[in-house]
Computed example of a mutant assay.
Amino acid sequence: MLCPSKADMKIAKNQHVKYLLRHLNLLPARASSYDSTRLAVAFFCISGLDILKSLDVLDEEKKKSIIDWIYGLLVEPKISDNEQGWERCGFQGSSTFNFVCDGRQDDTCPYKSGHLAMTYTGLATLLILGDDLTRVNRKALSAGVKALQQENGSFCASLEGSENDMRFVYCAASICYMIQDWSGMDVQKTINYILGSISYDYGIGQGPDLEAHGGTTFCAVAALSLMGQLEANLSEKQINGLRRWCVLRQISGFQGRPNKPVDTCYSFWVGATLKLLGAFHLIDYQQNKDYLLLTQDPITGGFSKWVDSSPDAMHTYLGLCGLALMNEEGLEKVHAGLNMSKRALKHLHGLHKKWDQ
């Protein structure tokens, strides 16, 4: 990919819209390994279109078909007032699992279970598309989250053989926030897990005694923010240490760890963390923007992890979000905590008001 001079660089909006639509309509062969997490890919594409202020390229019929497809991935109890089986409630990542479980007349198939990351992206995508979540059994979904919390306060992704770490702490907090039900989380245990994962350098790792990382630092800080527990549980020294750790991750764009190359996605992960910590103004906006625009493909569309490498849906979305954090012209403003547009967040808060009545 030939890179234009910095003075000529602009967001290739039309190309990015086409790129995201291609991935939404047909997953490329090179991305076939992501089939089991197809719902996350759909989130990157649909939320990316939202950030580009281009969600209207999806007509109402298309939006309805996507919403119906997402609900088709929901594992929920057959009887709404019976709590049996609620521990498996949540969204799956792909309809592929339905074929694996084909022929089972009961819920004994081990793959018939929700996944925290897919539940988060599923709910977020429904909200972005304007759905009112009336087809979601929020009590059952909360029970599904609760079943995945571990004794140390962390969360597994699913019931069947999953690791547990800070990524799923964030997903659990996001789900609880979106469905306005925190009964699925022992909040104090989760807070203790997060505080125990703060490293000597004030960054935050996947868990206690693990290396600090830009992505997991975001997950921890955003989870605390969504709980309304950020300032109440971090000392001034810890907050200042976190700010310093994050600011030092900027080279041109941002790196995820010290002595690592810059990577498009960390412009969001680290940038959003600084936004939540009230220190985003300390970054060099122009250097960050220049790096991000160098990673876009102005011909085929999409953003890549590094300059002169192939784009993918995740880095395309997070690259756009990194630019949106800087209030880039032509982009929707992004909510740092939930990683979705503020337009979609307004819709969510409208639902919360209805549920409160």
Rank of each mutant, 00 (worst) to 15 (best):
K189C: 06
Q206S: 09
N192Q: 13
F218N: 09
I179H: 01
F168K: 07
S225Y: 14
S183T: 15
G205D: 13
D186C: 12
M166V: 02
T217E: 11
C176T: 01
G205A: 11
L224V: 10
I239T: 13
G214I: 04
E160T: 12
R167I: 03
G205P: 08
N240Q: 15
Q180S: 14
T216E: 15
I194E: 09
A220K: 09
G161K: 03
C156P: 00
V169L: 05
L159Y: 00
M166A: 14
M178S: 14
I191F: 03
A220Y: 11
C156W: 05
S235Y: 00
A222Y: 10
L210H: 02
E163L: 05
S235H: 01
L195Q: 15
G228Q: 07
Y202H: 14
I175S: 04
L226S: 09
F218W: 14
P208R: 03
G207A: 13
D209P: 02
S183M: 07
L226P: 08
G241E: 04
S235V: 04
C156I: 07
I191E: 04
I204Y: 10
I239E: 07
F218M: 10
G205E: 10
Y200P: 02
S235N: 04
A222G: 11
D181L: 02
K237N: 11
G228H: 03
F168V: 01
Q180L: 13
G207E: 12
T217C: 13
V169H: 07
A220E: 13
T190A: 00
M185F: 05
E211K: 14
L210G: 00
G184M: 07
G161T: 04
G241L: 00
P208I: 00
N240D: 13
F155C: 07
A172R: 01
N233E: 05
N192I: 02
L226M: 15
T190F: 01
S199K: 11
G205R: 12
G228M: 06
A232K: 12
Y177F: 15
A173M: 02
G184R: 00
L234E: 09
Q180W: 06
Y170F: 15
N240I: 05
F155A: 02
S197V: 06
L224R: 03
Y202W: 14
G228F: 10
A173S: 14
I198Y: 05
F168G: 05
A222S: 15
I204Q: 14
C156D: 06
A157S: 15
D181Y: 00
Y193L: 00
E160P: 00
N233R: 13
G196W: 01
N164P: 05
Q238A: 10
D181P: 09
G214R: 02
C156S: 15
T217H: 14
S158M: 08
K237H: 05
S174C: 14
E163I: 03
N192C: 04
A172P: 06
Y202Q: 10
I175F: 03
S235G: 06
M227N: 04
I198R: 12
R167V: 00
E163M: 03
V187D: 02
I198C: 09
G196Y: 01
L224E: 06
M178T: 15
F155I: 02
Q180M: 08
G196R: 08
S199G: 13
M185V: 15
S162T: 05
S197T: 13
S197P: 11
A173L: 05
D186W: 10
S199V: 02
G207P: 03
G161D: 02
Y200D: 10
R167E: 12
G196K: 07
L234A: 09
Q229M: 11
K237Q: 12
G203W: 08
